[in-house]
Design a protein around this nucleic acid. Structure first.
Length: 497
RNA sequence: CGGGGCAUAGCGCAGCCCGGUUAGCGCGCCUGCUUUGGGAGCAGGAGGCCGCAGGUUCGAAUCCUGCUGCCCCGACCA
C-alpha cells in the first residue's frame, strides 16, 4: 500500500523518515537542511511549547524577543563561545539585491556590503547579555528571568528531520542572578522542569546529569542535561541547562551593585529545548504501524470512526460522545469522510498516532456500546455507551502511563553496568536480536578516570561518548575501564544522536 | 567536508547495460456503477521538458562531461 512504512528493525533511519513523511509531520524544503513543519507536526510542537511555557511562567519566568541578527563582533567577546559556534554560523554580508545586468535574474548588489557582517543567531547569549548590561544596575533588578521562543540557525553538515536541522525552533531561557548559588539553583530548577516535562508529558524517561568538560556548552562553567534512550539503543540529549558563571557578564561587562554597595559581576544561566524533542518523541514510542503519541501531547486524542460509513444515527451518537469528551478537555475528531472505508481510516489514524479510536456501527448501537482501540497496544475492546467519556478519560491516562512504563522498562533492560573495556566494546558493537540493524548498545554505566583524553580515546575506539555524569549516581570507587586509573563514580556512556 | 548510491506522473518503481515510433506499471487523483465491521471491485479518464546545463548522434530517459538535490556511511554537532 502507498502508506506502508519501512520495518523498524530492518532500517531504523528509513523507518524514522517514513513516519515523519507519512504521518504528515514535515517535508523537506528547497533549502538544504531546512524542513517544512506541517500542521500535524507543528501541532505536536505547539502542545509541547504550551506546556513548557506554562511551566516556565509558573516558576516566575517571562517571555521576550531578541533579534535574529547578531553583530559579528559579539560572537568573539566570549572566547570559548566563539570556538564552539564559529564553524556553523550563517553570515549576512549584504542587504540588497539588484537585477542582473546580464538579464539572469537577480544578483547581490555589491554596493550593499554591510560594514559589520551579521550572524544569524546560533543561540542568543551574546545579544541578550549585551542588552542586559543596560537593564541591570542594582541587586534589586535581579533575578532577571527571561525566556524566548525563537528560531536559530546552525549550519550542520549532516541533517535529519527534527533531530538536527539547519534551522530549528526552540526556547532559550537566559537568566541573571546576584549570587552563584541562586544561579546554580535556577540551572537545576530548569533541569527538573525539563525532566518532569519529558517524563510526564512526553512519557520519555530521562537521566539527569552533568556533561563532561568535553561535552559542555561553549561558554558554560557547567552543563546539565537530560538524556533519553531511543528504540535503536542510541542516546538523545533532550534538553540542556547551563550554569554560565560570570563568563558572559564579564564578556559583556554586566555588573550590579549589591546590598553592601559593592560592584559585582552578574551570575547567569541559559537553557533550552528544541523541535528535536519531536524527533525524540517519535523515536521513543512509535512502531511499525506508524507514530505513537502520548495522549498529553497528541493533537487529536480520540478519533471516532463510523462503521461502515457516516449515517444520521451514528452521527447523533458521535456528537453526544464528542460533547462528553470535550467537556473533559479531551480533543476528539469525528472522521465523517464518506469516501474512505473503515479499514483505511483505522490504518490512517494509527499512522498518525491517535491514542484512542472509537468505532461505532449499527451493531454497536443496537447493543449500546462502542468499540475502543488503543494505539499503544493495538488492543480492541467494547465499552457501554453510557459512561464512555469516563472510560476514555481513564484509558488515556492509562496509555500515557503505559508508554512511560514501557519506555522505562526498555531503558532498564538496555542499561548495562560494565567493568571491562572488552565487555564495553562488545556491547556497543554487537547487534541485538530483534532490534534495529543499527543497534547502538544502549546505556553503559562504567568507570572513567575523569580525563578528556580518555573520553576521546574511548570515543575513537567505540563511537560511544559520555552522555553524562548522572546526578543520582552513588559514589562508588572503581577503576577506569580504559586506563585502570582510579574513578570515584560511574558515568553513563552511549552512542548518541 | 570525504566515500558510496539514487534522481523517470502527487508517491513508489520499471525501462538505461545494447540509443530508434505515441515512455510504462502499482498506489493515489477525477467520473460512473457496485460495494462497505481492518488499507474495496469493475469500467472509463486526467496527469511527464525522464533533476538541471552542455556535448556526441540523423535521432538521447538511455552514451559522455559538468552542476544541483536527496539518501546511506564516516568526521562535526543539540
Amino acid at each position: 500500500m502507498a502508506k506502508e512504512i519501512t520495518n523498524r528493525a530492518e532500517n531504523y533511519s528509513q523507518w524514522y523518515q517514513d513516519i515523519v513523511k507519512k504521518a504528515d509531520l514535515a517535508d523537506n524544503s528547497a533549502v538544504r537542511g531546512c524542513m517544512v513543519i506541517k500542521p500535524n507536526g507543528y501541532a505536536i510542537w505547539e502542545n509541547m511549547r504550551d506546556q513548557l511555557d506554562r511551566m516556565f511562567k509558573e516558576t516566575g519566568h517571562v517571555n521576550a524577543y531578541f533579534p535574529l541578527f547578531i553583530p559579528k563582533s559579539f560572537l568573539s567577546k566570549e572566547a570559548k563561545h566563539v570556538e564552539g559556534f564559529a564553524k556553523e554560523c550563517a553570515v549576512v554580508t549584504h542587504h540588497r539585491l539588484m537585477n542582473d545586468p546580464n538579464g539572469e535574474g537577480v544578483i547581490v548588489d555589491p554596493e550593499s556590503k554591510l560594514q559589520e557582517e551579521l550572524i544569524v543567531r546560533p543561540t542568543s547569549e551574546t545579544i541578550i547579555w549585551d542588552a542586559y548590561r543596560g537593564w541591570i544596575q542594582s541587586y534589586r533588578d535581579l533575578p532577571l528571568l527571561i525566556n524566548q521562543w525563537a528560531n536559530v540557525v546552525r549550519w550542520e553538515m549532516r541533517v535529519r528531520m527534527f533531530l538536527r536541522t539547519a534551522e530549528f525552533l526552540w526556547q532559550e531561557g537566559h537568566t541573571a542572578h546576584a549570587t552563584r548559588q541562586e544561579a546554580m539553583e535556577e540551572t537545576l530548577r530548569i533541569l527538573d522542569i525539563y525532566a518532569k516535562f519529558a517524563e510526564e508529558y512526553m512519557a520519555v524517561p530521562v537521566i539527569k546529569g552533568i556533561k563532561t568538560e568535553n561535552e559542555r556548552f561553549a561558554g558554560a562553567d557547567e552543563t546539565f542535561c537530560i538524556e533519553a534512550l531511543m528504540q535503536d539503543g542510541k542516546a538523545l540529549q533532550a534538553g540542556t541547562s547551563h550554569f554560565l558563571g560570570q563568563n558572559f557578564a564579564k564578556a559583556f561587562d554586566v555588573k550590579f551593585v549589591n546590598d553592601k554597595n559593592e560592584e559585582e559581576f552578574v551570575w547567569a544561566t541559559s537553557w533550552g529545548v528544541s523541535t528535536r524533542l519531536v524527533g525524540g518523541l517519535i523515536m521513543a514510542h512509535s512502531d511499525d504501524s506508524g507514530l505513537v503519541l502520548p495522549p498529553k501531547l497528541a493533537p487529536v486524542q480520540v478519533a471516532i470512526v463510523p462503521i461502515p460509513k457516516p449515517s444520521p444515527e451514528i452521527g447523533e451518537v458521535a456528537e453526544k460522545i464528542m460533547k462528553a469528551l470535550r467537556d473533559k478537555g479531551i480533543s476528539v475528531k469525528y472522521d465523517k469522510d464518506d469516501q474512505k472505508r473503515p479499514g483505511f481510516k483505522f490504518a490512517e489514524h494509527e499512522l498518525r498516532g491517535v491514542p484512542v479510536r472509537l468505532g461505532i456501527g449499527m451493531r454497536d448501537l443496537e447493543k449500546g456500546q462502542v468499540e475502543v482501540a488503543r494505539r499503544d497496544t493495538k488492543e480492541k475492546t467494547f465499552t457501554p455507551l453510557v459512561g464512555v467519556a469516563d472510560y476514555v478519560a481513564n484509558l488515556l491516562d492509562d496509555i500515557q502511563q503505559n508508554l512511560f512504563n514501557r519506555a522505562k522498562k526498555f531503558r532498564e533492560e538496555n542499561t548495562t553496568v560494565v567493568d571491562s573495556f572488552d565487555d564495553f566494546k562488545a556491547i556497543v558493537e554487537t547487534p541485538k536480536e530483534g532490534m534495529p540493524e543499527s543497534w547502538g548498545g544502549g546505556f553503559l554505566s562504567a568507570h572513567w578516570d575523569g580525563t578528556t583524553e580518555t573520553e576521546l580515546r574511548i570515543k575513537e575506539l567505540t563511537k560511544a561518548t559520555i552522555r553524562c555524569i548522572p546526578l543520582d549516581g552513588d559514589e562508588e570507587p572503581g577503576q577506569c575501564i580504559l586506563t585502570g586509573k582510579p574513578s570515584k563514580r560511574r558515568v553513563l556512556f552511549a552512542k548518541a544522536y
